[in-house]
Each structure stands twice: as C-alpha cells, then as structure tokens.
Amino acid sequence: MESAITKLVEVFTKYAGKDKRLGKKDFQKLMETELKNFITNTENNKAVNELKDQIDKDKDGKLTFEEYFCLVTQLATNKYKLQ
C-alpha cells in the first residue's frame, strides 16, 4: 500500500513542471498516458480541458497536487463502487 501511495506521488511529480503544478499540456499527457484505461476520451483535448477546469478549484489554470489527488480519489471511489 505504501508503494501505491508513493506511486501516486511519483506520477504527479513526473508530469508536473518545475513549479510543481500540472499545466494544460502536462495534464493532457498524464491523462493520455496514465489513465486511458480508466477514462474514455483521453485523446479528446477539449474533453480533457473541461475535466481539468472542473478539478481546478482555485481557477488558476494549473493543477496542484491536492487538485490532482481529488481526481485520483474520485476515480478510485467510482471504480470501487463498480466492483
């Protein structure tokens, strides 16, 4: 379980820029590469941007670790309910 948590942090760090936040392109890349099995339409940039705007609570155009993690936990919860 600790390795899973470390992995969630590592994935964020891998895609985030030097400012430790995910910009538009970073987020698109993360979605295409890391979540294409969990989410459909990850190659549709418009849909991905809409999703990003929904998660971006402080509306600064970039995703912090906390905002990214809200998405991860929502996805995990949805997946858990489906099982």
Partner: peptide, 18 residues
C-alpha cells in the same frame, strides 16, 4: 495494459477490500 497510476489505484482498492 493498465498504467502505473491505474495499478496503484487498483492496489489501494484491493488493500481496502482485503
């Protein structure tokens, strides 16, 4: 083939379930 992020999320679900 699940990505590393997807595997990590699945493993959290499995741990909880176990």
């Amino acid at each position: 083939m699940p990505s590393e992020l997807e595997k990590a999320m699945e493993s959290l679900i499995m741990v909880f379930h176990r």
